[in-house]
Write a protein that binds this DNA or RNA. Sequence first.
DNA 1: ATATATACAAACACTCATGTATGTAAAGGG
DNA 2: CCCTTTACATACATGAGTGTTTGTATATAT
Lengths: 221, 221
Amino acid sequence: MRRTKSESEETRQRILDAAETVFLDVGVSRASLERIATEAGVTRGAIYWHFANKKELLEAIIGRVHGRHQAVVARTFEGGAEPLQKVLDWALEVIEAFATEEHTRKVYTIIVTRCEYVGEMQQARRLQQTMHDTMAANFQSAFEAAEAAGQLAEGWNAASASITLQCFMSGLLDNWLRYDFDADVAKKLRAGLASLMASFRAGAGLAALASVSPDEGGGTT
Amino acid sequence: MRRTKSESEETRQRILDAAETVFLDVGVSRASLERIATEAGVTRGAIYWHFANKKELLEAIIGRVHGRHQAVVARTFEGGAEPLQKVLDWALEVIEAFATEEHTRKVYTIIVTRCEYVGEMQQARRLQQTMHDTMAANFQSAFEAAEAAGQLAEGWNAASASITLQCFMSGLLDNWLRYDFDADVAKKLRAGLASLMASFRAGAGLAALASVSPDEGGGTT
DNA sequence: ATATATACAAACACTCATGTATGTAAAGGG
DNA sequence: CCCTTTACATACATGAGTGTTTGTATATAT
């Protein structure tokens, strides 16, 4: 009955997929390893072989999206585009990801509304904090560059713009996942983002709005 | 041993206080009624007398802050002030409440990071959604009034401004509670809010910033 | 003054998840 | 070809929490 190395990796992934489903369904604490095992077509023995406990399962799940997130950040922030454009591109990509990739939505829903960050699970929270801090740092430096180039509108500075966009994006995702936004709201969100970014831009007229294409729609569930 | 009616109400409140403490400490699902009872100086019998189960305990806790929140909304939105000023006042009051009242912070921390909204607990989520919708409706009508009065800056409309501020405030509180902001960040938050509100205001110069007093500080934990 | 409902405490019965220990068949290295 | 390790399945031991039932002293209504 022993599996080959690649088969083993396959069951590992199946366990992770099953864990996502069950975590989303009944929450992390109520999710029994027995149910996850059944959903993955294995026994608890398999889970305990690949992971020490439920906490490590959750961390592995977060790790998978962490990697994808890093890739997006790298792609948008390491180009040679104008700083404000980079930030906008990043925000649009994030919204796009949430609108189109159910997998992304699933995992973040678990993170936001299906887990209690207490005891051992606090380590998982620190993993999120790392992602958060990375994002904040990228915002900060992008807005500083914009400020230095005189591209920030009057009334804003790097710090205030950075923290404002950070809160806006966090709140956007939080509301999205917590209250199950429909496609209609998704459009309003893009409009809000467009207006906000326009207000950051020095000498911004309605011209800046054109860079956001508000006619692409994305459904939620 | 039987208590008088007011004594009974007193123990009810003690149970709620204890539940808050324990929920915050170990999360809603890990919180055993036994531990809550001990913390309140009673037995589980007392809890089951006052509440049907853990879910009703949580709902009662949320209900307490729900009432306070409604009071703040009524106070700020039912006045005769200018619509944008009402919104700003409300936002500042919320930030102030989170900065100064540990109790408010405790309960919202439970709501945001110590509860899994699944199964019976979904009802508790609906309670939040009600609060959220109330807030959104107030924003919407305030910004519509501002738009009608020509007080909204170019680039914004009632819908985009409303959803932007809504996301900003949600994200602000979410980040605050999730990542334990320090007093330094609290200042940046006020600055961000000031800039954002200023950008909403038609013909806004730096004058509008004066209405926010950024020198009042509030610590977190 | 007594009967009843109240406000709990104490005891019981039951489920269910967790961690670990042991079994085992096949993969893969030498 | 054999030995070891891998990749699980199975079995076991244990604890912890929940809902309910029963007991009881006393406030309160009549």
